[in-house]
Every structure is written in C-alpha cells, then in structure tokens.
Amino acid sequence: MSLLPSLFANRQFQIIVIVQMLMVFSNNLLNPVLPVHFQSIGLNESQIGFAMGIVSLGALLLRPWSGMSADVRGSRFTLLVGQFLMWTGFAAYLWVTGFWPLLFVRFYQGVAMSFYGTGAVTFASTVGTRETATAAIAYFSLFTMIGLGAGTSAGPFLYQAVGFTPLIAVSLTAAACAAAVTWFGTKPAPARAGEGRAPFRAVLAAKIVLAPSVCLFASNFTLGTMFTFVPLLALARGIGGYSVFFVSFSLAVVLARLGVRAVNDWFGPVKTSVGASILNAASALLLAAAPSPAVFAVAGVLVGFGFGTIYPTLAGYLVQNVREANKGSALSILSGAGDIGNALGASVLGVVAHAFGFTAVFSAAAAVILVCAFYFHTALVGPARTPTPSA
C-alpha cells in the first residue's frame, strides 16, 4: 500500500481516475436496463442478445487502430476521441428504436469504447515508472469498478423511478463532465512510437500477450452473459429484486480491486488469474442450478471477486512483460479479447437462451471459462513465462 500515497499525489493520476469513474458510471447506468428496455419496445431474446453483443464487435474491429493511436499519437488524444464518440452514442438512444438502427448504434458505441478504453488505461499506465505501472492499473481499475458499481446499482432504480429518457440525460451529463475534466485537466502523455516498436501482428502472436487475452476473453464472456440474461432470467421465473445481483457484484468487485495487489504478491499473476476464473465459473453454475434472490446475491459476490481480480492482474502482467513501445497495442489486444467475450456471451448465448433456456446459457458460460483458464495456465507455466522478443 506504500505506492498508494505517491500515486494519488500525482495530479495526472487524480484526473484520470476521476475521468474513468465518470465515464464508466455514465455507460453502466444504461447497461443493466437496456435488455429490459429493448424487450419493452418489442425485441425478442435473440435480438436482445445481438443488440447487446454487437457493441463488443465494434470495439474489437477498431482495437488495432486504437492501440496504434495510443502508441503513435498519444493516449490523451485517443481517449478524447473516444469520449466524444461515446457521448454521441448515448444521445442516439433517445431517437433510435428499431432493431436494425439499434444494432448500428450499439456497433458505433463499441467503436467509441475501443478508443476511450485503450486511451484511458494506457494513460493510467504511463503515470509514475514502469515498476509502479501494475499498481497504477490496479488502483485505476478500482475507480473503474466504483463507477461500474454506482452505475449498475443506480441504473435499474432510476429506470423504474423516472423512466428511460431522464436516465439518458443523467448519463450524458456524467460523460460531458468527464470530457471537460479530460480537456482542461490532463497533459499529453508521451507516445511510444520509435525504435523497438513491433508490428501489431507480432505483438498479437506473442504468447505472453495471447494467453492473458484468452483468459480475459473467458471472464468477459461470463460477465457479458450475466449482465444480459440475469434480468431476463428473473423476469421469466417471476423472481423479484434481481438488482441484488448487481449490488452484490459492485461491492465485491470494489473490495477485490483494493486487495488485488496483495493477492498477486502472494500467489503470482498466473495462479491469481486461474483462481479468479474458477470463481466466475462457480457463479455461472449457481445461476444455472437454482436461481433465486439469495443465489443472485451469492453469484454477484463470486463473479464480483473473480472479475474484480482478473483484469488488473492480466493488464499488470502485460505492462511488466511487453516492450514500452508496444504497451498500447498489447493493452488494446487484451481489451479486444474482452470485447470478443462480451460479444459472444450476449449474442451466441442469446440464441441458446431462445432455443434451450437459461440453464443451458449459464452452464455453457461456465464451461467456456474453465476451458480457457486451463489453456492460460498451461501456456504460461515454465519457459513460456519468459517474454518473447516480438512482444
């Protein structure tokens, strides 16, 4: 914890964590209620799954460009572009209602998230020294989870209390405040293009980047499934109070981010990531077996600790093991793998939900995460833990 005072004494770190908290809050006010809102305007389960998942496809396709933008033009430029695109995407929900227009807006939102997310995490990793980068990402991601927790907890309540349009207005206000803080408060972080920068494909092919990316894919596959289908499962089974899942998730994920550095010190990043994956799988299996308000609460705690641990662990592992000039590209690949997980968890399992029901959905999510965790562990033990020259 000795790094905490020095990090928060840095004004640029203060600014980026405030910006991240506001942007994540604005986005996650909407995420828990969008499936219910889409259902209310006539979309079926399969259409809802595609609409929720395609945002990750948009993010994925732009990850190479957002990563190179952070490496070549700097992370501040990249996150400002992302903020503008995200704000306009939120505003579009006020007018767009049909299935195909909603798919376009969700895809556009993914493009925005690609630029914003890559720019923000790369900016945070440049604060301090290379040795403190892991701690910077961990505490940065803690504020991510505070924003996520506040947004996912408040979103369903506000939606029920005031409706969809006022909820959009709150989201737009938070995003506009974040953009103003970024514009007036941040200084350009140094770009890292130059000698030693490997091509994007070479960074992608390096096992030191690929294996953590597969692990994060599985984590986001499970989380995307839960965020999309827990509300629909509750409605289908007549279970009230599904928001307890999001509240317990939010509390657990914040606690996990507070302790993630200590857990990594004790067990190392590989064992920590495998353990977090097991927690995520256990949460999905509980939802498959016996959904109820109590199970929603326990499942939220398990996936909160799992998800709260896994991203900063994997991102810190990359920052410590890839070349400085490739940091933006490596982090964009890691985030892109998470985008794939979100997309497949919502869209592919939306078809499964429509055909086979929710028990099959959550069982499949657990199976995917266990297979990917096994690959991650076998890929990074022994000699494979040494960074390859291309990374």
Rank of each mutant, 00 (worst) to 15 (best):
L285T: 13
Q109R: 00
V33C: 03
R11P: 07
T182D: 12
G196M: 08
M226C: 14
V260K: 12
G350F: 14
A353T: 11
G42L: 03
R130S: 04
S69T: 13
D71M: 10
V55S: 13
R385A: 15
L380I: 08
H37C: 02
L255G: 15
L318V: 06
V36S: 04
L85K: 15
W183N: 06
R201S: 15
P166R: 03
D339W: 01
F221D: 06
D339T: 02
V361H: 11
L285I: 15
A189E: 10
F90D: 02
S171M: 06
V55F: 10
Y108L: 00
T173I: 01
A175E: 04
A191P: 13
F8K: 03
V111S: 13
F13V: 03
A112R: 01
Y311A: 08
L331Q: 10
G259T: 02
G67T: 07
N326T: 12
V351W: 13
A51N: 03
A175I: 11
S69N: 11
F77Q: 09
V17P: 09
F200D: 13
S390V: 08
Y311Q: 04
F77G: 10
T225A: 14
P293E: 10
A202I: 11
P212F: 13
M52W: 02
A282W: 12
A330I: 03
V111R: 04
F245K: 04
S213W: 04
V247C: 07
T122Y: 00
F90Q: 09
Y116S: 00
I340N: 09
R323I: 12
G240K: 01
S171I: 02
T228F: 01
L285D: 12
R385H: 14
A236K: 05
Y159F: 15
A198L: 07
S347G: 09
Y108Q: 00
N321D: 05
N342H: 01
Q14F: 14
Q320Y: 06
L344W: 11
V351C: 08
G336K: 00
F246K: 06
F229K: 12
V260N: 11
A384C: 11
F267R: 14
A120P: 09
V298Q: 07
G67L: 04
T126F: 02
V351Q: 11
L279Y: 02
L235T: 14
K271T: 02
A325M: 08
A282H: 08
V24A: 11
S171E: 05
Y375W: 03
F376E: 05
A367V: 13
F229W: 09
V81F: 07
A211N: 07
P291E: 13
